[in-house]
Write a protein that binds this DNA or RNA. Structure first.
Length: 177
DNA sequence: TCATTGATTTCA
DNA sequence: GAAATCAATGAT
């Protein structure tokens, strides 16, 4: 599908809703990237995970506001990037109103089946920290008008957060038709 | 299954 | 300052 067929999500209100509403709605939409040379490419979002507030022990903001997590306290619609295992940048989209630290981790897009591969493919790094998806000319979200079939499952790799949080079905996966 | 890898956080 | 931690990946 050509990028011009997609409708950009430029309304901040889409992102300032609760993360548990936004995360499943992002699956089946398109992550659009405009590279430095002007080339525009749209990627179907396959898989997301929700991280919800300081009470969520799997959310980085559960330990409070730090220089790294600060952007999660902003109103939804900005990008939260972080480095894990010293090697992989993770792409997250901040959601919810101001001072509610929520974010959606983009785990997989069409053609890249892991969050580390995803950011490497799209050439995303810390320079995208705080990028506004509604106004940026480098990265944004677009609606393809799909009505996707979505499956849920527990989140991945957060056993450290304890059984309760590790069992929340806050991972959203696009199912093939 | 295991080594890689470095920013962030925690402890002193 | 120093040490431990870690939401992953690719090679074995």
């Amino acid at each position: 599908m050509a990028a011009t067929d997609l409708i950009r999500l430029s309304d901040p209100d889409f992102f300032t809703r609760d993360v548990l509403t936004v995360a499943p709605e992002l699956t089946g939409k398109y992550l659009v990237r405009q590279y430095a040379d002007g080339h525009v490419q749209a990627y179907l979002i396959i898989e997301t995970e929700a991280y919800r507030g300081e009470e969520d022990k799997a959310c980085h903001a559960s330990k409070g506001c730090t220089p790294r997590t600060q952007v999660m306290y902003e109103p939804g619609g900005v990008v939260y990037m972080y480095l894990i295992y010293g090697m992989y940048w993770m792409l997250n989209i901040v959601t919810g109103p101001a001072s509610q630290p929520q974010a959606v981790l983009i785990r997989a897009i069409e053609g890249a089946n892991g969050p580390g591969k995803l950011t490497r493919t799209l050439m995303l790094d810390r320079s995208f920290y705080g990028e506004n998806l509604c106004t940026s000319d480098r990265i944004w979200i677009a609606d393809a008008g799909l009505n996707p079939n979505i499956k849920t499952s527990p989140r991945i790799g957060i056993d450290y957060a304890g059984e309760f949080w590790a069992n929340q079905p806050w991972r959203f996966i696009l199912q093939p038709h």
